[in-house]
Write a protein that binds this DNA or RNA. Sequence first.
DNA 1: CCTATTTCGACTAGAAAAGTCAAGATGGCT
DNA 2: AGCCATCTTGACTTTTCTAGTCGAAATAGG
Lengths: 149, 149
Amino acid sequence: MSVSSKCYYAIRAIYALAEHTTPEPMKIADIAQKELIPIRFLEVILGQLKGGGFVQSRRGAEGGYRLAKPADQITIGEIMRYVDGPIAPVDCVSQSRPKECAFHGECSFFGFWGRVRQAISDVVDKTTFADLIKENQERKGGYVRDWTI
Amino acid sequence: MSVSSKCYYAIRAIYALAEHTTPEPMKIADIAQKELIPIRFLEVILGQLKGGGFVQSRRGAEGGYRLAKPADQITIGEIMRYVDGPIAPVDCVSQSRPKECAFHGECSFFGFWGRVRQAISDVVDKTTFADLIKENQERKGGYVRDWTI
DNA sequence: CCTATTTCGACTAGAAAAGTCAAGATGGCT
DNA sequence: AGCCATCTTGACTTTTCTAGTCGAAATAGG
């Protein structure tokens, strides 16, 4: 029941990009340093995330990465699914590509595993990176400036 | 985020023993056949479960395994933890043996992973094997005879 | 004593995870 | 145009875990 380190790295990389509000893209080396990710491995991961449409890159000097969409439109669950595959304790209760097990419709555990999967989804699919950033600003600063009118 | 097949086998083995209500112990071969578990692998698993105090064994002819305590006193979560280790998406939020990560108290994800772990625990630690058996009797038979007065 | 059965530890093949590396393509800057 | 920092790609390695397998010993009942 645990997330691969690759997946956690991916999540942290996205988080770093989400916190990086200035317009120029963020360099791989900066992300790696901030989030303590092996730089060569991070290259691989960012390449994958680009393929999934989560980040964009700019080459050349002054190049780097930035988010492809606003942080409040990316959930943690999306990234977990994209990097680690379906979120399901056993294959037969996967939402996206359920796999029939040997017990077909007569499995005594189908309902149970379904409830486990739902419990996880309820957390990870309802949390966006914007939510996390806000949560941490509150925790650190004690308050968050609210710009809404 | 998935359970090892060893762990799922262990859960199914316990379930088979819980359903086996006659007094004599149940043979490994019978459990293996009923739950579709490779018999040699099941030997390994039952040995481990015995070490954890979940099952008892009797050797020799007419030997076999039986539960060490009633089915309503064994939760799925216990078995999962015993076989697969702590139930936690990342090591730092494990209840039993949390492992400090490189970010110490300043981790932006600590709260989030904690909520994920809690969501899972809320399901697996509150479901006993007796609950599962009852659920399946209701599903199959349409009703369950209630022997309580 | 004999036999069925459990028990135990060692062993292994294969896959996946985690990370490394080198060489080439690209784009901004001077 | 030329330089250089940076991204891009794909192959490669190393380590760890998974999912078993196997053989021999111990044991209990008949």
